[in-house]
Each structure stands twice: as C-alpha cells, then as structure tokens.
Amino acid sequence: MRKIRTYQDVSHSTESELLEQVIEQQERLADRLSPIKCLVAIASGKGGVGKSAITANLAVGLASRGFKVGATDADLNGPSLGRMLNVSGATLGDSADGVAPAKSPTGVSVMSMELLQSEADAPLQWREPSLGGFIWQSSLETGVLREFLGDVAWGDLDVLLIDVPPGTDKIKRLLEILPSLDLMLLVTTPSETTRFVVAKSIRLAQEARIENIGLVENMESHVCPSCGHVSKLFGTEANEEELPYGTVSLWGSIPFDPRLGASTDEGRPLISTDPTAAVSIALQALVERVSEHINGGAQ
C-alpha cells in the first residue's frame, strides 16, 4: 500500500482558508461581546417551562433598575421574545459595523428571528437543496445564532440575556460558540419529567465549567385569587435532598399565575403592568439576585 501523507502530516496551507474564516468568525463574536459586562443564558433543556416569559420579565425588571439590557432569542424556530418585549414589526438599522437591534418600549435591545420573517405564522425555512437538510441545518442554525450574538450592534450593555430553546443539544451548541458565559439560569418546574431533563442540563453546564449556575423554579405553587389558598400544581412534591439538582442553588421561585403568560404574550410583561402581584414580587426577587451578580456582588 502506498504511503500517503495524512492531513496532519501536511503543514502547508492550500489557501482554501476555511479554518481561517472560522477563526475570524470566533474573533468577531468575541470582539462584539467583550464590552458586555454580563452574559446570561436562560435555559432548561425542557420545553414549556416558561423560559421566554421569565427572560422577558427579567429583561424588563433589569431595565427598570437602570441597567442597559439586551435580549436575544436563540429559539430560531419558535421565536417569542420579540412579541413578549413588544418589538414585533420593528425595523433594524443596517450598517457595516452591525445590525442595530430593535428597541422595546421598556428600553431593552432585542434580536429575534421573528423580526426577520415576513409571515408571523410561517415556519422558519432555509433556501435549501431538496435533500440532506439533516446534514447541514444544525450547522446553519448555529451560524445564524452566532450572527444574532456577534453581528448585532449591542454596544456596551450591562447584561445580555440569551433565551435558549428546549433541548440540551441547544445549550451545548450555545456554549460551543460563546467565548464565555457569566451565568446560566436553568428554569425548572416541580414536574418529575422536567426535573429529570433539567438535571441533564445541570450536568452539561457543570461539565462545560460554567461557574455560576442558578435554578429558577417556575410554577412552584398556585395562589387562589379568591381565597388566597396556596396549592401545588404538580403532584410530585419532593424533599430538597431528593431533588436531582446537586449543589446548584435556587435563584428564584415563581408561583403560577395565568396572567404571567397572558400579559407577557401580549407584549406587556407582568412585572411592569402589575408589580404588586405575587408572581411579580417573586420575579423582582430574581431580578434583585441577577442585579447583584451583574454588579459583582453575592453569587
């Protein structure tokens, strides 16, 4: 058999410049994010736990405290942050330096796939050859997410919130492209299935050596609006030591309130429209904790 040199044996460049371009992409992303004080991912691994609603309310709560806040919707196929932060239909400034994000009425800079799509109810589709989408689609969507982070003129934000779609693979992709992450908030619920999936996300984040991981337990209880009786929404109450979360600390505990979803879906995050509601007070406690983190205080 002939001895043919391997790829690694050959040091000579062919000038195809593929690797160089990938490195340049990473450098551009790092440069864009470097003026941002704090990068926070809001993830779960599980769908339907309220990540986007919590992200939107957190963004508005932080902005109302004077922080310069950005929010990017990493859920390309099911975007909702644009609607929740009331920027649907906004235009984006186009310059060689980057695309200017939409600005919400509450002062949050926003980027979401929803802003780019012509029809709100149309699924995201790519110009594609007829076959083989499963081969390149993940690569393409990771590239588009990189653009949502690195090609948007965020400026010197205090905090950029990243609303991560369901699936632990999506968390992994995000961590692969981000040069660093200051905080990952994992949204869970008292459901046994959710706990099982979130435990996987915790492990993934720990293996990626994310220093600051916080849990946000959503829908942890329901307060009857008539009599004030507090009940559990899920029948799987567990002792703290039985939970599969290890040493990860609880950053927020959000009661269920149907108005949270309804109001936020209408582009009016409840934290600003009804700040005295129990759920808003719980969200403010989360905002306080994240504020301390941004300011370099208690972890």
Partner: peptide, 29 residues
C-alpha cells in the same frame, strides 16, 4: 450547502463578511 452553512467560502473571501450575511442569504421568506 454544507460548506456555505458554515458561513465560509472555499478559497477565502473577496469581500469581508457582512453583518448577518448568513441569515440574509439563507432564509426563505
């Protein structure tokens, strides 16, 4: 498509990458 989905061009770029170039050139609708 596999190569272009990475946002790179074989042989290098004649012009610098444009902001959100991959999104704009790849999206349908």
């Amino acid at each position: 498509q596999l190569v272009s989905s990475m946002g790179v061009k074989i042989g290098g770029r004649e012009v610098p990458a444009q902001p959100m170039e991959l999104s704009r050139t790849s999206m349908e609708g």
